[in-house]
Simulated assay, not measured.
Amino acid sequence: MNDSIGYRGRFAPTPSGPLHFGSLVAALGSYLDARAAQGEWLVRIEDIDPPRCPDGAASTILRQLETFGLEWDGSVMWQHTRDAAYQTALDQLIQLGIAYPCSCSRKQWQAFDIYPGWCRDGVCDPTQPVAWRLRSDLGERPIQWQDRLFGAQQFDPAELGDVVLKRKDNLWAYQLAVVVDDAEQQVTDVVRGLDLLDNTPWQRQLQGALGLPQPRYLHLPLIVTAEGQKLSKQNLAPALAEDERGVRRQLFQALAALDQAPPQALAAEPPATQLHWAVANWSLEQLRPAKHRSIPPSASPGD
């Protein structure tokens, strides 16, 4: 954590579609944790994968945040403008000997649980395009940290595999971009969904190699359907409500999903009133370290 500045959090969605109820819970948890600490809350649009980012999706996300009263500080950071910063970081990792080119395709190693590291000592097929991977077997292992909700964590990155930093199509991969951008924005606290918990070892490994500050981490329980499936854009989770009544209801339900026990009367109040109460009463101690939360029956805007 960077102790030279106050609390600085962020919400960093991929604009592959509009926000859904699970996204709202993650954004709200991040927002409340920052505001309760009298800190800053930033928004970053992680649009490094253009094929996954339809036109207008980012604008929709920003409008949704505003509709729910989640106002951010400063300018929005757009990852598609950050190519030079990512390349500088990759060059540094190459110079350190912990990033290497890899010609292997997923089809070639699909029989293995993780990529076997075939190109660590030289590109297997120099005639093929290459991705750049992180050597997960180097540096301090295992990676250990204290999650603010789930407690002590320990992972050996080598058991997770050599993650891709830059793809064969020259698009940047998530792990490198998020580390570089968190450092650039001086993020002190990362609050996000539990599905990203096992990404943290790679990110801390990169932070250590690049000499970057290591933020604190708080991973939130995932919102799942009645069938136990994670809400996501990939499984066509419905977009957040846009009508006034639906917005109030879903914001209240998101507070309940974060175990904040909002008074029932708050459900009829506009977002500004709900958020004012929520910031004043934010309690991490009330948040139960369960892996999942079921989506409330009426969280779909169509109900």
Rank of each mutant, 00 (worst) to 15 (best):
residue 78 W to M: 07
residue 79 Q to R: 05
residue 80 H to Y: 08
residue 81 T to S: 10
residue 82 R to D: 03
residue 82 R to S: 03
residue 83 D to F: 09
residue 83 D to E: 09
residue 84 A to R: 15
residue 85 A to N: 02
residue 85 A to C: 02
residue 86 Y to F: 15
residue 86 Y to I: 03
residue 88 T to A: 12
residue 93 L to G: 07
residue 94 I to M: 08
residue 95 Q to I: 15
residue 96 L to F: 04
residue 96 L to A: 15
residue 99 A to W: 00
residue 99 A to N: 04
residue 100 Y to F: 13
residue 100 Y to N: 05
residue 100 Y to M: 05
residue 101 P to N: 10
residue 101 P to Y: 03
residue 101 P to H: 11
residue 103 S to C: 02
residue 103 S to G: 01
residue 106 R to M: 05
residue 107 K to D: 13
residue 108 Q to L: 02
residue 110 Q to E: 13
residue 111 A to Y: 01
residue 111 A to E: 11
residue 112 F to G: 00
residue 113 D to T: 15
residue 113 D to V: 14
residue 114 I to E: 05
residue 115 Y to R: 08
residue 115 Y to M: 00
residue 116 P to A: 00
residue 116 P to S: 00
residue 118 W to S: 02
residue 119 C to K: 10
residue 119 C to S: 01
residue 119 C to G: 04
residue 120 R to G: 00
residue 120 R to Y: 00
residue 120 R to L: 06
residue 121 D to W: 14
residue 121 D to M: 14
residue 122 G to L: 04
residue 123 V to P: 01
residue 123 V to H: 04
residue 123 V to K: 06
residue 125 D to W: 05
residue 126 P to Q: 11
residue 126 P to Y: 10
residue 127 T to Q: 13
residue 131 A to M: 06
residue 132 W to F: 12
residue 132 W to S: 10
residue 133 R to K: 01
residue 134 L to T: 11
residue 134 L to H: 07
residue 135 R to M: 03
residue 135 R to V: 03
residue 136 S to C: 03
residue 137 D to P: 01
residue 137 D to I: 11
residue 139 G to C: 03
residue 140 E to K: 06
residue 143 I to T: 09
residue 143 I to D: 07
residue 143 I to M: 08
residue 145 W to C: 01
residue 147 D to I: 10
residue 147 D to C: 07
residue 149 L to M: 10
residue 149 L to R: 00
residue 150 F to W: 14
residue 151 G to T: 11
residue 153 Q to S: 08
residue 153 Q to K: 09
residue 154 Q to F: 02
residue 154 Q to K: 10
residue 156 D to I: 04
residue 157 P to H: 08
residue 158 A to K: 10
residue 159 E to S: 13
residue 161 G to L: 09
residue 162 D to A: 07
residue 162 D to C: 06
residue 162 D to P: 06
residue 164 V to W: 06
residue 165 L to A: 03
residue 166 K to P: 01
residue 166 K to R: 10
residue 166 K to C: 08
residue 167 R to F: 04
residue 167 R to C: 02
residue 167 R to D: 04
residue 169 D to A: 05
residue 169 D to V: 02
residue 171 L to V: 11
residue 171 L to S: 04
residue 172 W to L: 05
residue 174 Y to A: 09
residue 174 Y to V: 09
residue 175 Q to E: 07
residue 175 Q to W: 02
residue 176 L to T: 15
residue 176 L to W: 12
residue 177 A to E: 09
residue 177 A to S: 10
residue 178 V to S: 11
residue 178 V to M: 12
residue 179 V to Q: 11
residue 179 V to N: 07
residue 180 V to T: 13
residue 181 D to K: 06
residue 182 D to Q: 11
residue 183 A to R: 14
residue 184 E to I: 13
residue 184 E to L: 12
residue 186 Q to I: 06
residue 186 Q to D: 10
residue 186 Q to G: 01
residue 186 Q to V: 11
residue 188 T to M: 11
residue 188 T to A: 03
residue 188 T to F: 12
residue 191 V to H: 02
residue 193 G to W: 00
residue 194 L to Q: 09
residue 196 L to A: 14
residue 197 L to Y: 12
residue 197 L to C: 13
residue 197 L to G: 14
residue 198 D to F: 06
residue 200 T to S: 12
residue 200 T to Y: 07
residue 200 T to A: 14
residue 201 P to G: 10
residue 203 Q to P: 13
residue 204 R to K: 09
